[in-house]
Simulated scan of single mutants.
Amino acid sequence: MSDDDQPHYLGHRERLRERFLASPDALQDYEILELLLATVIPRRDVKPIAKALIARFGDLAEVIAASPAQLREVDGIKDAAATGIKVVHEAARRMLRLQVLDRPVLSSWDQLLDYCTGAMARLPTEQFRLLFLDRKNVLIADELQQKGTVDHTPLYPREVVKRALDLHASAVIMVHNHPSGDPAPSKADIEMTRQVREALKAVGIILHDHLVVGRKGHTSFKSMGLI
């Protein structure tokens, strides 16, 4: 195929790659998505699809965090493209997790917040994670405990205690998300935290904190004087 017969978007795609390699920060969100989509949709102009994703979800972070089903609602996104986007999300989550795993959590608090926010802040339903620490406050396990609805996740103190004892943990950090975006704890959050704290205390395990994350930020029960 001669240069004149090449699809118009191939030249644009090559220039975009060159710009990315020279200065990644200079690219807009939709242009990053263009480069990503070009790897899984090589024979189509993906610029309109990238712009449609941004229009649908708002920004790059929201696109990456969207579920495969939500992504497929956008014209041009099939299974391959949705999978490619979710691979990026999972890779980012794992990179953030490596910053806190097997390290003293209390001395790497900002990294912990980044990980919790990246993993949970944009989820469409509530989820509960339990972070189990050893005597040196090193993270020894990070487990998704419960999945719930858009505004409620059941968490049973006896299950938290049982798992902490199984892992020989000395301390626990509770984390859950608010899909509404507002990280302010509810009365139910406060009461449930009190019950878990008392149950853990009865077997000599410390509840260090309960973090609530959302699109609008995070809250710490300890910082608020609730623990």
Score class of each variant (00 low, 15 high):
Asp25Glu: 14
His208Cys: 07
Arg122Pro: 01
Ala184Gly: 08
Asp166Glu: 15
Gly58Met: 02
His208Ser: 07
Ile140Tyr: 01
Ile140Glu: 01
Ala61Phe: 02
Pro183Val: 10
Leu200Phe: 11
Ala141Val: 03
Ala82Asn: 03
Arg197His: 15
Arg129Leu: 15
His12Lys: 05
Glu159Trp: 11
Val87Glu: 07
Asp151Tyr: 04
Leu16Pro: 05
Thr219Gly: 07
Glu198Met: 12
Asp189Lys: 09
Leu36Met: 05
Glu62Asn: 08
Leu21Ser: 05
Ile205Thr: 05
Ala188Ser: 10
Ser220Gly: 02
Leu139His: 03
Asp189Leu: 10
Leu16Lys: 01
His210Cys: 09
Thr153Asp: 06
Leu71Gln: 03
Ile64Ser: 00
Gln99Thr: 14
Asn177Leu: 13
Asn137Val: 06
Ile32Ser: 04
Val175Trp: 00
Thr149Ala: 06
Asp102Cys: 05
Asp4Glu: 15
Glu14Gly: 00
Leu113Gln: 04
Leu16Gly: 04
Ile64Ala: 00
Ala188Ile: 10
Gln28Ile: 13
Leu10His: 03
Arg135Glu: 10
Asp102Ser: 13
Tyr9Glu: 08
Asp59Asn: 13
Leu144Asp: 14
Ser107Thr: 10
Ala141Thr: 04
Val213Asn: 08
Arg17Tyr: 09
Ile205Ser: 10
Leu167Ser: 10
Arg194Met: 14
Leu71Ile: 07
Ala50Val: 12
Asp45Arg: 05
Gly58Cys: 07
Gly217Val: 03
Met1Leu: 09
Gln70Arg: 13
Phe57Val: 06
Thr39Trp: 02
Leu60Gln: 05
Pro104Phe: 06
Leu106Trp: 11
Ala22Ser: 15
Arg122Ala: 08
Lys47Met: 14
Asp166His: 15
Gly214Glu: 01
Gly181His: 12
Thr83Ser: 13
Val46Met: 02
Leu211Asn: 01
Met120Gln: 15
Gln127Lys: 09
Ala52Cys: 04
Ile54Pro: 13
Met224Tyr: 11
Leu226Met: 13
Ile205Val: 10
Leu167Trp: 10
Glu62Arg: 14
Leu37Gln: 03
Met192Cys: 12
Lys78Trp: 03
Gly118Trp: 07
Arg72Val: 04
Leu36Gly: 03
Asp79Gln: 09
Gly58Phe: 00
Ile173His: 01
Phe128Met: 11
His152Ala: 12
Arg103Ile: 08
Ile190Thr: 11
Ala26Asp: 13
Leu131Ile: 12
Leu16Phe: 03
Ala169Cys: 14
Arg19Met: 00
